[in-house]
Design a protein around this nucleic acid. Structure first.
Lengths: 336, 336
DNA sequence: ATGAAAGCGCTAACAG
DNA sequence: CTGTTAGCGCTTTCAT
């Protein structure tokens, strides 16, 4: 059993101590209409006295929990940290509490985590789950306000906040092609699918499109790796050892790019690398990673704003797209 | 209002659909004693049929929530990511759900976030809050199992999991002194206090002790900076511009060390840098950060294990200390 | 083996 | 302006 010496105070105890009714205490608590100053004072005093804290679970049974949930697939990716910072900032002046549920390790699909949040009656959910089906989301959004992060589908049951991945990938490819590269490899995750308009799906598709447009269809090479710097490092190292001869690698996000940089450094070949997201470390002079900046904090803040609007009653969907910006650094240069 | 077309199914609905009582459904749900196979089957069928999900809030009013909360001060610090990974792994085979509450931006003290978690009736809390008073923690731990991460006080109301910061800082200093450095600066956070046995307090104290022991009391320089790579970068750059002449900098953690590396690189002076934690990026050849490795994942997993023991009934405190290991890389070498 | 019924702490009508 | 009261969905004795 949990240690519970002297069950903590309930609204009933406060009411008794202040000599008023439970309803009165509840009103003071919620700052509701119709409480005299003298009563407010006595109640407030009793609350501090007894160290009273309202039980959110009990409150949840009638009304709101003042809790916003965010589902995140991977804490290792600092882009999500940028997003979280924006979300925290946007929530700072409200009475909402933020809780974050990580998707289970292996299965990055995250539906479980989203449902765990909903089961706990958060007032709204932001989720980063490119692979959850729109049907599942529609079902959830029918009861709980939802904002999806990084999705390009446009359900009208939930809002979306995403970067323009086609424009971003296009900028990256234009940069590399402009530098004179022809043997450009794309490094992405195992599940990226050109047919699915997920961020990585779109980046992959754009990579191929741009290669073809440049007459380099024969040079298209797509390398797949698991999530994380370490996995990317091993994948690229192995590819290079097995004879791959790229002059440039476009990685689907910065974590992968950083692992790539490691393998490239060890190979001491002059391979250009471009990432995506502009995580904080990317601009470090030791890495100098050329990358596509997404304004993660703004996007996170906007997601919260949209979610609160939905919690407040809006029912028509909003789909917001943010423009990325190429940041050219030392990790990319002309071949040879 | 939140969208709520067709309130979702309750235990009552399931009972009706299966033609049994609420109590029966509850028993099936919790796998309790005394349910016939036939009943279990019918109930299970009804649950899937209706897409039933138990409301955790309602459950919370009587029993457990099967939720573990972790309070984290700063997602930017990848050491906490290591810790979270360990915690997630340890929780993966249980029916507990993990939720994370970030401490508010500025005030890293985190008490608010811990209480938010407790208000939401998590079954147990892990917190990373060097500055919350033992009194506040004792109060919380009286009702909710608590494991503190990175604390060296030994209350018997809560468990602790920490690294041996004295040993770690000692290893770092021995390394730098052994290399022949004398003008060693320590970079730490504004609130670090040698009198407080917090991780950074102990690292600071050990720095001073080791300097004095080496007869370098006059060379002691403590630089203070806000959290984050960026702030560390600015602080160190300014110090160097203003004439500081260290030959080595021992940073209180890797984020600060990485920012330091940036300022050092720009100054193009041969200053050695040592960090603390061994975050994933530290071993990247482009940085080659010499640092003190703390086994964050093991520590996170152990924290969960201890917490679950407490949830299960243990009441005597356990205080666990993990040994750090120096990782020597290229960021540190002999002076000149 | 199954069900009836009493709450858990809070909010929200509604009366007074 | 203040208090009474009826639940919210679930768990848990206690009868049957």
């Amino acid at each position: 059993m949990a240690p519970t010496p002297g069950r903590s105070a309930t609204i009933e105890d406060v009411a008794a101590a202040a000599g008023v009714s439970r309803a009165a205490v509840s009103k003071v608590l919620r700052d509701a209409y119709g409480v005299s100053d003298s009563m407010r004072e006595r109640v407030t005093a009793a609350m501090t006295e007894l160290n009273y804290r309202p039980r959110i679970a009990a409150r949840a049974m009638r009304g709101r929990t003042f809790t916003i949930g965010i589902e995140i697939p991977d804490f290792g990716n600092q882009f999500f940290t940028r997003m979280l910072n924006g979300a925290m900032r946007a929530l700072a002046d409200t009475q909402y509490q933020l809780v974050i549920a990580p998707a289970e390790a292996g299965s990055r699909h995250g539906l479980r985590a989203i449902e765990a949040l909903v089961d706990r009656q958060v007032d709204g959910v932001i989720a980063v789950s490119p692979r959850v089906t729109p049907e599942a989301l529609d079902r959830i959004a029918a009861h709980t306000p939802v904002v999806m992060f990084g999705r390009h589908d446009t359900s009208d049951a939930y809002d979306t906040v995403a970067g323009d991945d086609v424009a971003g990938a296009h900028a990256a490819m234009t940069h590399l092609l402009g530098l004179g590269h022809t043997r450009i490899t794309h490094l992405t995750l195992p599940e990226s699918d050109e047919e699915v308009p997920s961020p990585h799906g779109l980046r992959l598709r754009t990579y191929r499109t741009e290669m073809e447009r440049a007459g380099l269809a024969d040079e298209v090479v797509v390398l797949r790796t698991d999530e994380g710097q370490e996995a990317a490092y091993r994948t690229v190292r192995q590819a290079l050892e097995e004879g791959a001869q790229p002059t440039a690698i476009f990685a689907a996000h910065d974590e992968l790019a950083i692992g790539t940089l490691r393998a490239v450094a060890e190979s001491s070949r002059p391979i250009s690398v471009v990432g995506y997201d502009d995580v904080p470390i990317a601009s470090h002079p030791a890495l100098g990673l050329t990358t596509v900046d997404q304004p993660g904090d703004e996007m996170g803040a906007r997601a919260i704003q949209l979610l609160l609007e939905r919690v407040g009653g809006r029912t028509d969907a909003v789909h917001e797209v943010f423009e990325p910006h190429l940041r050219v650094r030392t990790s990319s240069r002309s071949p040879e």
